[in-house]
Amino acid sequence: MNIFRLSGDLSHLLAVIILVLKIWTTRSCAGISGKSQILFAIVYVTRYLDLVTTFVSVYNTSMKVIFIGASFATIYLMYSKFKATYDHNHDSFRIEFLLAPTVILALLINQKFTVLEVLWTFSIYLESVAILPQLFMVSKTGEAESITSHYLFALGSYRGLYLLNWIYRYYAEDHYELIAIVSGIVQTVLYCDFFYLYITKVLKGKKLQLPA
Protein backbone atom coordinates (compact mmCIF):
# COMPACT_ATOMS: atom_id res chain seq x y z
CA MET A 1 0.00 0.00 0.00
CA ASN A 2 1.19 3.53 -0.81
CA ILE A 3 -0.18 7.03 -0.38
CA PHE A 4 -1.32 7.22 -4.00
CA ARG A 5 -3.34 4.03 -3.82
CA LEU A 6 -4.75 4.90 -0.38
CA SER A 7 -5.83 8.38 -1.47
CA GLY A 8 -7.22 6.86 -4.65
CA ASP A 9 -9.31 4.37 -2.69
CA LEU A 10 -10.49 7.09 -0.30
CA SER A 11 -11.42 9.33 -3.24
CA HIS A 12 -13.36 6.41 -4.71
CA LEU A 13 -15.06 5.79 -1.35
CA LEU A 14 -15.90 9.50 -1.10
CA ALA A 15 -17.45 9.43 -4.57
CA VAL A 16 -19.79 6.50 -3.88
CA ILE A 17 -20.80 8.02 -0.53
CA ILE A 18 -21.46 11.46 -2.08
CA LEU A 19 -23.70 9.80 -4.65
CA VAL A 20 -25.78 7.79 -2.17
CA LEU A 21 -26.10 10.84 0.12
CA LYS A 22 -27.05 13.12 -2.77
CA ILE A 23 -29.89 10.84 -3.85
CA TRP A 24 -30.98 10.07 -0.30
CA THR A 25 -30.96 13.67 1.05
CA THR A 26 -32.44 15.34 -2.05
CA ARG A 27 -34.76 12.31 -2.56
CA SER A 28 -33.98 12.70 -6.23
CA CYS A 29 -31.67 11.11 -8.80
CA ALA A 30 -32.06 13.90 -11.34
CA GLY A 31 -28.96 14.26 -13.47
CA ILE A 32 -27.60 10.85 -12.51
CA SER A 33 -27.19 8.15 -15.13
CA GLY A 34 -28.74 4.88 -13.95
CA LYS A 35 -26.97 3.12 -16.83
CA SER A 36 -23.56 4.09 -15.50
CA GLN A 37 -24.59 2.84 -12.07
CA ILE A 38 -25.63 -0.51 -13.56
CA LEU A 39 -22.25 -0.73 -15.29
CA PHE A 40 -20.44 0.05 -12.03
CA ALA A 41 -22.38 -2.69 -10.24
CA ILE A 42 -21.28 -5.13 -12.97
CA VAL A 43 -17.70 -3.86 -12.61
CA TYR A 44 -17.65 -4.47 -8.84
CA VAL A 45 -19.37 -7.88 -8.95
CA THR A 46 -17.13 -9.26 -11.70
CA ARG A 47 -13.98 -7.83 -10.10
CA TYR A 48 -14.65 -8.73 -6.50
CA LEU A 49 -15.65 -12.37 -6.96
CA ASP A 50 -12.35 -13.17 -5.26
CA LEU A 51 -14.03 -12.00 -2.05
CA VAL A 52 -15.03 -15.62 -1.57
CA THR A 53 -11.74 -17.17 -2.67
CA THR A 54 -8.89 -14.94 -1.45
CA PHE A 55 -8.54 -12.96 1.76
CA VAL A 56 -6.09 -10.09 1.19
CA SER A 57 -6.74 -7.89 4.25
CA VAL A 58 -9.55 -6.47 6.36
CA TYR A 59 -9.16 -3.20 4.47
CA ASN A 60 -9.39 -4.93 1.07
CA THR A 61 -12.42 -6.99 2.01
CA SER A 62 -14.31 -4.16 3.70
CA MET A 63 -13.75 -1.75 0.80
CA LYS A 64 -15.00 -4.35 -1.69
CA VAL A 65 -18.12 -4.95 0.40
CA ILE A 66 -18.73 -1.20 0.68
CA PHE A 67 -18.34 -0.61 -3.07
CA ILE A 68 -20.68 -3.48 -3.96
CA GLY A 69 -23.17 -2.41 -1.27
CA ALA A 70 -23.12 1.26 -2.27
CA SER A 71 -23.59 0.50 -5.96
CA PHE A 72 -26.58 -1.75 -5.30
CA ALA A 73 -28.01 0.78 -2.85
CA THR A 74 -27.71 3.47 -5.53
CA ILE A 75 -29.45 1.27 -8.09
CA TYR A 76 -32.21 0.48 -5.59
CA LEU A 77 -32.71 4.21 -4.88
CA MET A 78 -32.71 5.11 -8.57
CA TYR A 79 -34.84 2.33 -10.00
CA SER A 80 -37.17 1.72 -7.10
CA LYS A 81 -37.47 4.21 -4.25
CA PHE A 82 -37.02 7.43 -6.21
CA LYS A 83 -37.65 6.09 -9.69
CA ALA A 84 -40.14 8.91 -10.34
CA THR A 85 -37.16 11.28 -10.40
CA TYR A 86 -35.11 9.15 -12.77
CA ASP A 87 -34.52 11.03 -16.03
CA HIS A 88 -35.04 8.25 -18.62
CA ASN A 89 -35.06 10.62 -21.58
CA HIS A 90 -31.58 11.97 -21.03
CA ASP A 91 -30.10 8.65 -19.89
CA SER A 92 -30.20 7.13 -23.34
CA PHE A 93 -26.67 5.81 -23.93
CA ARG A 94 -26.75 2.30 -25.42
CA ILE A 95 -24.70 0.30 -22.89
CA GLU A 96 -24.73 -2.74 -25.19
CA PHE A 97 -22.12 -0.84 -27.18
CA LEU A 98 -19.91 -0.87 -24.09
CA LEU A 99 -20.64 -4.39 -22.85
CA ALA A 100 -20.09 -6.30 -26.11
CA PRO A 101 -16.64 -4.89 -26.99
CA THR A 102 -15.34 -5.21 -23.43
CA VAL A 103 -16.48 -8.85 -23.20
CA ILE A 104 -14.81 -9.65 -26.52
CA LEU A 105 -11.64 -7.76 -25.60
CA ALA A 106 -11.45 -9.56 -22.23
CA LEU A 107 -11.68 -12.90 -24.01
CA LEU A 108 -8.94 -11.90 -26.44
CA ILE A 109 -6.52 -9.95 -24.26
CA ASN A 110 -6.05 -11.22 -20.73
CA GLN A 111 -3.28 -12.39 -18.41
CA LYS A 112 -4.60 -15.93 -17.98
CA PHE A 113 -7.56 -17.65 -19.60
CA THR A 114 -9.37 -18.63 -16.40
CA VAL A 115 -12.90 -17.63 -15.39
CA LEU A 116 -11.82 -15.36 -12.53
CA GLU A 117 -9.06 -13.74 -14.58
CA VAL A 118 -11.21 -13.11 -17.67
CA LEU A 119 -13.98 -11.65 -15.47
CA TRP A 120 -11.41 -9.46 -13.69
CA THR A 121 -10.08 -8.29 -17.08
CA PHE A 122 -13.62 -7.62 -18.35
CA SER A 123 -14.25 -5.60 -15.18
CA ILE A 124 -11.12 -3.52 -15.77
CA TYR A 125 -12.06 -2.80 -19.40
CA LEU A 126 -15.68 -2.03 -18.51
CA GLU A 127 -14.73 0.34 -15.71
CA SER A 128 -12.68 2.45 -18.12
CA VAL A 129 -15.82 3.27 -20.14
CA ALA A 130 -18.54 2.89 -17.47
CA ILE A 131 -18.74 6.66 -16.92
CA LEU A 132 -19.62 7.36 -20.57
CA PRO A 133 -23.42 7.19 -20.08
CA GLN A 134 -23.06 9.69 -17.21
CA LEU A 135 -20.86 12.09 -19.19
CA PHE A 136 -23.19 11.66 -22.16
CA MET A 137 -26.15 12.57 -19.95
CA VAL A 138 -24.40 15.68 -18.60
CA SER A 139 -23.64 16.75 -22.17
CA LYS A 140 -27.27 16.18 -23.18
CA THR A 141 -28.71 18.10 -20.23
CA GLY A 142 -25.96 20.68 -20.74
CA GLU A 143 -25.38 21.06 -17.02
CA ALA A 144 -24.86 19.19 -13.74
CA GLU A 145 -25.71 19.99 -10.12
CA SER A 146 -22.61 20.94 -8.18
CA ILE A 147 -22.95 17.88 -5.90
CA THR A 148 -22.98 15.68 -9.03
CA SER A 149 -19.85 17.39 -10.31
CA HIS A 150 -18.12 16.78 -6.94
CA TYR A 151 -19.10 13.12 -7.28
CA LEU A 152 -17.62 12.99 -10.78
CA PHE A 153 -14.46 14.79 -9.68
CA ALA A 154 -13.85 12.31 -6.83
CA LEU A 155 -14.65 9.35 -9.09
CA GLY A 156 -12.37 10.58 -11.88
CA SER A 157 -9.54 11.43 -9.47
CA TYR A 158 -9.47 7.94 -7.96
CA ARG A 159 -8.20 6.26 -11.12
CA GLY A 160 -5.89 9.21 -11.80
CA LEU A 161 -4.33 8.60 -8.37
CA TYR A 162 -4.08 4.92 -9.25
CA LEU A 163 -1.93 5.91 -12.24
CA LEU A 164 0.51 7.50 -9.77
CA ASN A 165 0.27 4.35 -7.63
CA TRP A 166 1.26 2.21 -10.65
CA ILE A 167 4.22 4.46 -11.44
CA TYR A 168 5.31 4.18 -7.79
CA ARG A 169 4.87 0.38 -7.75
CA TYR A 170 6.80 0.04 -11.01
CA TYR A 171 9.86 1.77 -9.55
CA ALA A 172 9.52 0.73 -5.91
CA GLU A 173 8.24 -2.84 -6.25
CA ASP A 174 9.08 -3.65 -9.88
CA HIS A 175 5.40 -4.62 -10.22
CA TYR A 176 2.99 -3.56 -12.95
CA GLU A 177 -0.15 -4.79 -14.68
CA LEU A 178 -0.31 -3.44 -18.21
CA ILE A 179 -4.04 -4.21 -18.66
CA ALA A 180 -4.99 -2.13 -15.61
CA ILE A 181 -2.58 0.67 -16.56
CA VAL A 182 -3.77 1.08 -20.16
CA SER A 183 -7.42 0.94 -19.07
CA GLY A 184 -6.71 3.38 -16.25
CA ILE A 185 -5.18 5.85 -18.70
CA VAL A 186 -8.22 5.60 -21.00
CA GLN A 187 -10.54 5.99 -18.00
CA THR A 188 -8.77 9.09 -16.70
CA VAL A 189 -8.47 10.68 -20.15
CA LEU A 190 -12.27 10.42 -20.55
CA TYR A 191 -12.61 12.76 -17.56
CA CYS A 192 -10.17 15.39 -18.86
CA ASP A 193 -12.87 17.52 -20.47
CA PHE A 194 -14.91 17.35 -17.27
CA PHE A 195 -11.85 18.06 -15.06
CA TYR A 196 -11.21 21.23 -17.08
CA LEU A 197 -14.79 22.43 -16.62
CA TYR A 198 -14.77 21.45 -12.94
CA ILE A 199 -11.59 23.36 -12.16
CA THR A 200 -12.40 26.43 -14.24
CA LYS A 201 -16.08 26.67 -13.24
CA VAL A 202 -17.26 24.69 -10.25
CA LEU A 203 -14.29 25.62 -8.08
CA LYS A 204 -15.12 29.26 -8.83
CA GLY A 205 -18.62 28.72 -7.49
CA LYS A 206 -20.23 28.67 -10.90
CA LYS A 207 -22.61 25.95 -12.03
CA LEU A 208 -21.18 23.30 -14.33
CA GLN A 209 -22.58 24.45 -17.67
CA LEU A 210 -21.43 22.82 -20.88
CA PRO A 211 -21.11 25.13 -23.87
CA ALA A 212 -24.38 24.51 -25.74
Binding site: R5, D9, H12, D50, T54, V56, N60, M63, K64, F67, Q111, K112, T114, L116, E117, W120, Y162, N165, E177, A180
Partner: peptide, 10 residues
Protein backbone atom coordinates in the same frame (compact mmCIF):
# COMPACT_ATOMS: atom_id res chain seq x y z
CA UNK B 1 1.84 -18.88 -11.37
CA UNK B 2 -0.66 -17.80 -8.71
CA UNK B 3 1.21 -14.49 -8.39
CA UNK B 4 0.29 -13.20 -11.85
CA UNK B 5 -3.43 -13.76 -11.34
CA UNK B 6 -3.36 -12.38 -7.80
CA UNK B 7 -4.76 -8.83 -7.79
CA UNK B 8 -4.18 -7.06 -4.51
CA UNK B 9 -5.67 -3.75 -5.70
CA UNK B 10 -9.31 -2.71 -5.55
Amino acid sequence: DFKSSFHDEL
